[in-house]
Structure formats: structure tokens, C-alpha cells
Design a protein around this nucleic acid. Structure first.
Lengths: 121, 121
DNA sequence: ATAATATATGAGCAAATGATCATATGTTAA
DNA sequence: TTAACATATGATCATTTGCTCATATATTAT
């Protein structure tokens, strides 16, 4: 037994210390998955557009559909995902639902990503 | 004609100014897609783990496979994606390939995301 | 050259994804 | 109440994704 952890690799090139160090440094499974889910939500061009637009000001489904350039149904489905992830929420005004970002965290994140990305171009 | 842009929505609730404002504020299509691709790459639990681990120190495929808990083939496939996106690169030492992050941008991004996320928990 | 190690890669497959279409729900005006 | 509007939702389908298995490539030791 080389380590107390699970043994899945029979390579001789393995660096147990590095694996251990990575494990120390790593996020707990649950948090890693939640974070991945957040990134995944931002990982679709249309959803990213939606989030980016809502960072500007609140918009209704119809506005978003035209802005993104897809059907209202498609936008509605995407918004449901974002709602379930608590990234966006809506406010009703008569028959119209105005969507907005739940918090500025996502907004900050998108901007940072873009800024960092920009520097490389 | 309400606007010079494409007409796709016949809703009466639409706010042309908001759509226009969003368009002004929006990223060009190409950059939006590249950014989405970046987020998507971070949007898989295993890839996120890999990136997170490599933020710590360089590791070989075998190390990563054990750390993530999947086959070396699976890790290799994920690494290829990350390589093609220029997020990671490798250094050969004999038969072993040591992977590392290409730049600290991704590292910064992951940390920021985590920090922001952390605050909400 | 041959064998063993470390990794890469292609094919194949099950699961997830994102759009569309049809339909349902909720709100307001007539 | 009925009609019209704005949005939500379920079913469906084509595409994408991520893994596995088999095989290929590259490096080193013998």
C-alpha cells in the first residue's frame, strides 16, 4: 500500500505526493460540481448573451428573444435553467415578466472573464 | 419598420430601446462564442478538477487520472480538449508528459469564481 | 530489435443538451 | 365570459458530450 487513498492507477510514474497535494488543495466534490454547474450555465453562447444583456438592465422574454435571435420558447427554456440555478429572477408587470440578475456576482464574473480574455487577444 | 435591425418578434410588449441598448453593450458574436467556449470548458466537473489541480502544480496524465478518479484514457481525452483551447500545455520528460496551465488567467478566473461563490454559501 | 511503459486517438454508445412544435397557464381588455 | 397577449411547459428529435474499449504512437530499458 502506497497510500491510504483509493488505488486506481498502476503506473510507476505516479507522484503520490502530487496527488495528495492536489487533494488537499481541491474543492470538495459538492462545491466543485456546483461551480462546474455555474460555469456550464455560462458556457452556452445564448445563455451567456442573456446573462450579459441582463447585466445591463432588466428585459422581458420578448426583448431577450429578439436580442438573442431565437424563439421566445427557446429563451423561455433557457431562462428556466437560469432561474433554477438562481442566476436570474423575474418581476411580473401585468402579463409581462421582466428578468434580472439575482446578484452581481455573475455580472462580476462575466466581466472579469472578459477582461482577462481580452488581454490575450 | 420599427428598427433597422432584423425583425423577429411580433410582441407588443417589446422594448426596442432595451434591445438596442443590449446590442450596444453586447460582445461581438465571435468573442461571445469564444468566451462561452472557455466557460464550457470549465463547466465539466472533471475538467474543472483538472484545471484546479494544475493551478497547484504540474502533473502527469497518470497523476491526474488518479486524482480525478477516472481512467487515464478519459483524462487524456479531456486534456486534448483543454490543449486545443490553449488552456493547458505539456512538457515531455522521457515517456511522461507533464501538464500545466498555459497562463494564470484561467487560474485567476477559477479562484475568483470560487471566492465569489463562496461568499454566497 | 523487442518489450514494457506512458500517453494519444478513433470508434462506438448511452446520456445530456438545445431547439422546435404544440399546448397549457396566467393576465388583461372588451 | 371570451378573446388576445405573454410566457411556461411537455414531448420530440437531432446534435453534442463524455466515457470505454481497442489500438496506435512515442520513449526507454533490455
Amino acid at each position: 500500500m502506497v497510500s491510504g487513498q483509493s488505488e486506481q492507477c498502476d503506473c510507476r510514474c505516479i507522484h503520490q505526493e502530487r496527488v495528495e497535494a492536489a487533494r488537499e488543495h481541491a474543492l470538495p466534490t459538492r462545491e466543485n460540481e456546483q461551480l462546474a454547474t455555474l460555469f456550464k450555465a455560462m458556457g452556452d453562447p445564448n445563455r451567456l448573451r442573456i446573462l450579459w444583456a441582463l447585466d445591463c438592465e432588466e428585459m422581458c422574454v420578448c426583448d431577450l428573444a429578439q436580442f438573442v435571435g431565437v424563439s421566445e420558447s427557446a429563451v423561455s427554456h433557457q431562462l428556466r435553467q437560469l432561474r433554477q440555478l438562481q442566476l436570474v429572477a423575474n418581476r411580473r408587470a401585468g402579463p409581462v415578466l421582466y428578468y434580472h440578475l439575482v446578484d452581481k456576482q455573475i455580472s462580476t464574473l462575466i466581466r472579469l472573464a472578459f477582461d482577462h480574455y481580452r488581454q490575450e487577444i
